[in-house]
Design a protein around this nucleic acid. Structure first.
Lengths: 165, 165, 165, 165
DNA sequence: TTTT
DNA sequence: TTTT
């Protein structure tokens, strides 16, 4: 059934990249999407939305985006439940991203310190081919991702083919 | 910021219509949106998504749709928190509908009993004018709503103006 | 870049199914999407939007939907130009469907004559396997398609696996 | 009926701001939306999509965005026809924007000359109140618009209330 | 348990 | 705490 979510927002923390036992990359993230209106107290508010993305796009997200980065997300809304530490069922609603567009590169962001390695994706030698044979149409969605390493303060869309992996 | 959700799904229960202290109608609902694929066990699964809709559309939803009805939803994704009965913070993600399209009328549904009044919207004398001066553009979104009282088993889109209130 | 279109509308004519020289199925269609408001003369109007869909979904669309059928479309907006018969450039904007949801089956529609074969998809012996090895993720999108051969006047979502090809 | 389009792209020319005889602002624009894949020749291609936006957002678009600016668009797909100079009917498909998000301000763009007044919105004394009483919910959509006059090369979302008109 |  |  029709199920489509499109968001533009800022990462509220660095993406959390992990690998399944089978070596498939998956990144969890949370973005703040500012509301177009102020609340009763005249404060601007935001919605804080959880998302998940898989495979190469997960790795790209973790490698190029960090807390504060602006991204566009095109995906589906999914729900799941799990048992909380207190034994109660917890209900989760999150966006499973089909594609993520980088609207602002790390290097175009101001408070660039880089002495802290906030990137939580270090040293998995098998990243490059953790997803062999990923040559179907879904790949194209992956190419939504753009990035920009030049720091000229401007988002650029580049193809997956141009990314360094 | 861009925040858009579009869903087609079936109500998992009758819509829950209430009124704010100021007399503004608001309906909560939950829809099952079938996933386009089967899970690991070959089972078709669904996402169960909560939604909210306001004013006239809330009343229309409660009046014309019920558990099992198929609807289309166009809205925004919002998050909020509240304190659970155990004092813990509960996180809620739900769709705030800008417009709802009725894709199947009550009368076109099969197990039509109608001896049970499952409709939980009875006898609020102020419904009709609970939203005076609602004559702005947002009204047009309201007109997304279609309904169909003839029971010919076919969705019809009609304007708010054609609805009996 | 983000590019997403979601529509619900009725086919203004039977889908036009063709095959590329390589045997890939492609269906062109046009849907009327009713506007949520009336025009200056109080008339309800519609937008008439062209769409294209590929492969198995093209065949399903042609096989199960016809003029008047209600469908949901999730896709991308694309533009192209061609040279008209008068030598002038013609600009085309159309939706390339990633997935199509059948919201009303042929059999649930009223003026069912069936003595005319309005279906323009006849006798291509190779349909069934015109797309061998179509077993990637894009397939799941295909499973958005539902159909309903029972004629009980109600849309049903079934998996591609349940379709007779 | 459901009709939703979401795009992120760059203006291919300066927005064209005009006023109706009644003094209502309307801006036409065209954006290039890069496709996520390369064509048969390995070239990256784009779709060139026409859009329209009304009232305050039209004025904001013309005042703050120019050729090359990156914007997000949330709207509806509409079609219309007109008679061409050769007497033939021309079919137009365009996006009517409900809201536009500024993802890059003029000042954050590099080739900033500003000695040419590319802004085609000059001196209409009635702009400020061309839309009296525009204080309904649709206004909030207007607040999607962000801009950024500081030139720090970073998109900012601000409320309509913060805009200098 | 929040971004700018 | 789930629809068909």
């Amino acid at each position: 059934m029709l199920n489509r979510v499109i968001l533009v927002g800022r990462l509220t923390r660095d993406p959390d990249l992990r690998y399944t036992p089978n070596g498939v990359a998956v990144a969890n993230f949370n973005i703040a999407v500012n509301r177009p209106f102020t609340d009763a107290n005249g404060e601007r508010t935001a919605d804080f939305i959880n998302g998940v993305v898989w495979r190469r796009q997960a790795e790209n997200l973790a490698n190029y985006m960090k807390k504060g980065s602006l991204i566009g997300v095109d995906g589906r809304l999914q729900t799941r439940t799990y048992e909380g530490q207190d034994g109660k069922t917890v209900y989760v609603t999150e966006v499973v991203a089909d594609s993520i567009q980088f609207l602002e590169s790390k290097s175009s962001q101001s408070n660039q310190s880089n002495h802290t390695q906030s990137n939580n994706n270090q040293g998995y030698g098998n990243q490059g081919n953790s997803n062999p044979g990923f040559d179907n149409q879904e790949q194209y969605a992956g190419a939504y991702e753009g990035t920009n390493m030049g720091g000229q303060g401007e988002p650029i869309d580049i193809s997956d083919d141009d990314l360094p992996f």
